[in-house]
Design a protein around this nucleic acid. Structure first.
Length: 101
DNA sequence: CATTTGACAGGAA
DNA sequence: CTTCCTGCCAAAT
């Protein structure tokens, strides 16, 4: 079997494991992926995500809980979705202090 | 193999 | 607090 999954698939799996009401930073995901400095590749992977429909991309936020991309109609929309999941928000950013997995 | 791109992070001004 | 620059990595071409 192909165990050698690309970073993309790896990140993909990790992001899918994020439970509702929780979020992970690119750094956290990258760290689980094997390289904490690969947060760059994480973003690249997510945007190239093969299953964006099943991936909880909106549960992945920046180091400050800020969302950079993923405009699900607008950042405001994304915020609303996360809040709907139970994530705590501070203004336009996620409260990593409580919602960070 | 080299170059380019990308949904980032951290530091400096 | 905001804005700009640099550094990092992986995948695609």
């Amino acid at each position: 079997m192909n165990n050698k999954k690309t970073f993309q698939s790896l990140v993909n799996e990790i992001v899918k494991t994020i439970p509702p009401g929780k979020v992970m930073t690119y750094k956290d995901v990258a760290s689980k992926a094997g390289n904490q400095k690969a947060f760059r590749a994480v973003g690249t992977a997510l945007k190239n995500n093969p299953d964006k429909s099943i991936i909880h991309c909106h549960r992945v936020v920046g180091s400050d809980g800020a969302m950079h991309g993923y405009a699900f109609g607008g950042e405001s929309e994304k915020i609303r979705i996360l809040k709907s999941e139970g994530v705590i928000f501070i203004g336009d950013k996620v409260d990593l202090a409580k919602s960070r997995l």
